[in-house]
Amino acid sequence: MTPPISWKKSSYSGGGEGNDCMEIADLCSRVAVRDSKAPTRATLTFPAGTFAAFLDALKSPHPTPR
Rank of each mutant, 00 (worst) to 15 (best):
C28I: 13
G15T: 10
G15P: 12
T64W: 02
H62S: 10
S11N: 05
C21P: 12
V33T: 01
F54E: 10
R66H: 04
S13H: 01
Y12T: 00
A42I: 09
G15K: 02
F54D: 04
G18S: 01
G18W: 11
T43S: 12
R66D: 11
T43E: 12
G16K: 11
G49C: 03
H62P: 00
R34A: 11
W7Q: 02
M22Q: 13
F46R: 06
F54K: 06
T2L: 13
K59H: 09
M1P: 13
P65G: 07
R66E: 04
T45S: 15
T43I: 15
F51Y: 14
N19G: 12
P39A: 09
T50Y: 01
D56W: 01
V33W: 03
D56L: 11
F46I: 08
N19P: 01
G15W: 00
C28D: 15
G14N: 03
G18K: 04
A48H: 11
W7A: 02
P47G: 14
L55Q: 04
I5A: 09
P61H: 08
W7D: 02
R41K: 14
K8F: 04
D56M: 09
A38P: 00
H62M: 04
N19S: 12
A42K: 06
C21A: 08
G18C: 06
P61G: 03
G14K: 00
S11L: 03
L55G: 05
P39S: 09
A52C: 10
E17I: 00
W7M: 02
F51V: 06
N19I: 10
D35Q: 11
G16A: 12
R66A: 13
R41M: 12
P61S: 06
A32F: 08
K9T: 04
C21N: 11
A42G: 11
P61D: 13
S13I: 03
T40Y: 07
G15L: 02
C28T: 15
S11V: 02
A42C: 12
P3S: 15
F54I: 07
I24Q: 10
L27F: 02
D56I: 02
P47N: 10
A25P: 07
P65R: 03
H62Y: 01
K8L: 06
I24K: 06
T43P: 04
P39E: 11
R41E: 14
Y12N: 05
F46W: 12
D26A: 08
M1N: 14
G49Q: 13
F46H: 13
T2H: 14
V31A: 05
I5K: 03
R30Q: 14
